[in-house]
Nucleic acid binder design. Sequence first.
DNA 1: TCAACTTTGTGAAGTAGGGAACTAATGCCT
DNA 2: AGGCATTAGTTCCCTACTTCACAAAGTTGA
Lengths: 228, 228
Amino acid sequence: MSISLGKGRPRKADRGIPDATVARLPVYHRVLVSLSEAGVQTVSSEALAAKCGVSSAKFRKDLSYLGSYGTRGVGYDVSYLTYHISRELGSAQPWGVVIVGVGNLGRALISYRGFTSRGFAIVGLVDNHPDVICESLTATELGNLVALKVRPLVELETIVGATKAQIGVIATPADCAQGVCDRLVSAGIRSILNFAPVVLEVPNGVEVRKVDLAVELQILAFHEQRRG
Amino acid sequence: MSISLGKGRPRKADRGIPDATVARLPVYHRVLVSLSEAGVQTVSSEALAAKCGVSSAKFRKDLSYLGSYGTRGVGYDVSYLTYHISRELGSAQPWGVVIVGVGNLGRALISYRGFTSRGFAIVGLVDNHPDVICESLTATELGNLVALKVRPLVELETIVGATKAQIGVIATPADCAQGVCDRLVSAGIRSILNFAPVVLEVPNGVEVRKVDLAVELQILAFHEQRRG
DNA sequence: TCAACTTTGTGAAGTAGGGAACTAATGCCT
DNA sequence: AGGCATTAGTTCCCTACTTCACAAAGTTGA
């Protein structure tokens, strides 16, 4: 036992990272990467937390759920910490993403460079509109430019099966979102990111995250209204 | 005093609606609107909460912060409740929104019908790329189709001043987001919705909400990894 | 009019998250 | 080598949110 020479004990309670912490880990990861690109090798919790927009206490407590990857009196080794956060997030292995709905939003996702740089590969594009089916779009998959053809909606299950995609993105209009969701689930997808403004019903074991652009604006408007 | 015949006392503690509640009000509002369109006139907290994906107790507690708009033994009058939630959210008055960055994401926002149907009007489009400046795009402003020309970035302050926009949306690449943010703030904007993957620094009194598409995917990937 | 039933609104208990302060480990300087 | 300065990791407390359970209020039917 006790191979702990200095740093890097495994991590403590392998389960039980609070949701709030998980939601912040990607931010920490991104800021660390940008520090690394700037040539910074070591950073304190104080400095890093400031760049992430959180308090240093919160930052340190968040990290304590993963393990003990810093050095007291010094701070954190940027690349070492980056590695451990990315491992925790699963960015080490590439995740296959199928995007359903190739309208403006879908295209924005396809051209979003942040996807591929964080371990995601778009492996399928699906739409049901004749004008876009068979259209060829270029995405960057793990750094390489890849041309993807938009496939018709009927092939959804085939594509999910063939590409072994793990994540489905719903970027369709609201009225077909639930139908698409059901088919993604029955094709084996258990993680769904939903941009359509509807509450999706899914069986247990399937996780849905929702991004609603109008909801965010409405929250801003609420606070805006609460000032003279 | 006491004009309270039956229903509709003002609301209780005019301050102090929890953030978590505010974040759910837009969902309640949207589901109520869809019920109304389906011809439903009355709904119980149980049924409505189910459609919103929350527990009925949470739903009732959320509403209790606004006031007492239901009828015991019966439920809620759909249009009556819709009105009060929308008033609380400020959807009654139209909010002017300026979108900075007319790439794929900006275009997705412009064509997103959910904006205008919930009291938002896109009053300005700004970009700094010569190819898109002066391009004319059609948005729906309060139900009417409106053609908006993309204006150059240097005119940002002028546009905010002339249109009296209250909300700024940053849909630019990461590297110019902070600069755009600073200019929005100095032009008088106090509510910002940020799609760029950076943590914005703003003075006190300015509210920033952030939507990061990659972060959402990373959260999904985290949970996906936590299953063999 | 009264009793049975439905459903809201709320008080109280339980849980999770945030903030500050403390402890302990490490590097640096003398 | 030893003390000092720095900074990570942890503990404790407090606030905010959620859940539960019940009483108040209203409707319906006899």
